[in-house]
Computed example of a mutant assay.
Amino acid sequence: MSGSSAPVRLLHLEDAEPDHALAMAQLRRAGLVVDATHIDSRAEFERALGERWDVILSDFNLPGFSGLEALRMLRAADALTPFILVSGEIGEDTAVEAMRNGASDYLLKNNLARLAPAVEHAIAASQTMAARLKADRELQASKLRLSELAQHLQTSVETERHAIAREIHDDVGGSLTALKFELDWVRKRVTDPEVLLRLQSAQDIVTHAIEASQRIMHNLRPAILEQGLVAALQWMASRFEKRSGIVCAFRTSHDKLVLPAGVPLVAYRTAQEALTNVSKHSGATRVGIDLSLTGGVLSLEVSDDGRGLSREDLAKAQSFGIRGLKERALTVGGWVDLSSGPRGTTLILSVPLDDDPQAPADGADDDGAADDDRQHDPSAWASL
């Protein structure tokens, strides 16, 4: 630092002019370029706090004032500026209290040989701390931007799913339905057994295509949510048990819930992802889905009795699925907790709810899509 061209801006709180001159001489003798300001009262110190200083030296005993008071005032206004106590006499207890309150160092006036190194070290430590705090702020800002991007992507994905599901319903579903009517019309007017057989085969293919379209569209945009989150989770549990052979019990504290827009879809997707992971990785024989609303917090818990996840499993890149659930929960102000052990895994989604009597019913989404989807109900295909 002695080779630096910029002088050290130093504030010296000292009521004895000879002691001030001695300290400055000691610093200059060590090669430090110092731009010093000498003050000796509380009022001057308060005014000086409005300026930027590289380091502050302070006597301990001042008329109607003390170095510890000055230190407390400084830390209340500025957490980083180095503060060094330089006193003719200071007890060990006082020195310890000063260090606890944020003093960078303390020295005795009868031994100023360490003054210059103490100043250089204090300034370097302050600069390091400032750089670390700046890096931490930048890191937090970066994490916030990344989280906002992830939430935006989650929302965009759901919007795109909605659009694709509607296209499947309007275009693919309409065309398949019309084709089935046409085939049925032809079948009623044909008597050739071979042609009738081919027509029946074609109708079976169209029926299969309609069912596949319904399944794809449901995965993209679950129409069952129009009946409410409770009904949707009941249906999901039943369907999961039939498909996987794993016993799946659904329990709820409410038969019907009125939830804010967006929350039902987040809860549904969370349960869907959790059950997918159970069927693929856990080796479980039983799964429990618990939905409750207590103290203004909606809680969805999915637990299984499978092999559980190790810390290594969670650290793998494949755990992006869990991170995705956490980002999805953030879109409605919620969070996800995951615990796992040798006897199974538990995933809990928690979403605080505002006491808003005007909140939409739990089938609604942010853009009023639930009302629109009633006009595009894929269940209408089942009767064709």
Rank of each mutant, 00 (worst) to 15 (best):
A284G: 09
I90R: 01
V55R: 00
T345S: 13
A21I: 12
D40K: 11
R187I: 02
E69K: 03
L62E: 09
R215D: 11
A48F: 09
S41N: 08
G64R: 15
E14T: 13
T270I: 07
H38N: 12
H169I: 05
D40P: 06
D313Y: 05
S340V: 03
A43G: 04
G91N: 01
A382E: 09
E89P: 01
L153R: 14
R198K: 05
L176D: 03
Q151C: 14
I322S: 08
V86F: 07
R28H: 13
D362C: 15
P264W: 09
D366H: 08
L225K: 05
V258E: 15
E69D: 12
K256M: 10
L259C: 15
E301F: 00
E158K: 02
S104L: 00
Q358N: 14
R52I: 15
L80P: 01
D59S: 12
G308L: 09
G173Y: 02
A23N: 07
A118M: 03
Q203K: 10
K109E: 03
S201F: 10
G88Q: 03
E226D: 14
N277P: 02
L183C: 01
R42M: 13
I168W: 05
N61M: 09
W53T: 00
D40R: 13
K109S: 03
A122K: 03
D377L: 10
A163P: 01
R161P: 00
Y268I: 08
S201T: 12
I246M: 14
R47T: 11
A36W: 11
F65R: 10
L309F: 13
L353W: 12
L108A: 06
A79P: 00
L229T: 11
D19S: 15
R221M: 04
E312F: 05
A232Y: 01
Y106R: 02
D367I: 07
L11G: 11
E312N: 06
E211P: 01
L62A: 10
G344L: 08
V258T: 15
Q375T: 14
L199Q: 02
L10I: 08
R52L: 14
G321Q: 01
G283E: 12
V247R: 12
Q272Y: 09
D372A: 14
G174M: 10
G174N: 12
A16L: 14
G67H: 03
R132Q: 14
V332Y: 13
S379W: 09
V8N: 01
P352H: 10
R114E: 11
A125G: 00
D170N: 12
G173P: 06
L115D: 03
G245K: 09
K316N: 02
L68Q: 07
E273L: 07
S282E: 15
M99V: 09
A141S: 08
L275F: 01
V8Y: 02
R189M: 06
T177S: 15
A118E: 04
I224Q: 04
L275I: 00
A202K: 06
G296Q: 06
